[in-house]
Amino acid sequence: MPDSRFKVLTSASTSGPGDAGRTGSWRVERPIIDYSRCTPAKTGKASCHLCWLYCPDNVVSKTLEPKIDLEYCKGCGICAEECPVKAIEMVSEEQFVKGGEDE
């Protein structure tokens, strides 16, 4: 048993999200899913889900309408590239900037 006089400080990390902060801010392009083309969304059947499989950052859900967690999505575009029906489009983040120079 360690002696209570000793604090024994070490680098022992515990698990949690966002070690690198809100990595969504890294993005220059945002994935936008067109559910009218997305196979599981269109058919209502569990199918495809390649965007979920290949997502390096665990930000795509394995749901009939796949959702992307934009808080953390780094915008790599692998989901768009691998989508067999081209249902995901990468759109410049500039388009989502609210307001303008006046603000």
Binding site: G18, D57, E71, C76
Partner: peptide, 8 residues
């Protein structure tokens, strides 16, 4: 967890 330090 998401939000880690791997490159995009």
């Amino acid at each position: 967890h998401p939000g880690n330090r791997a490159c995009s």
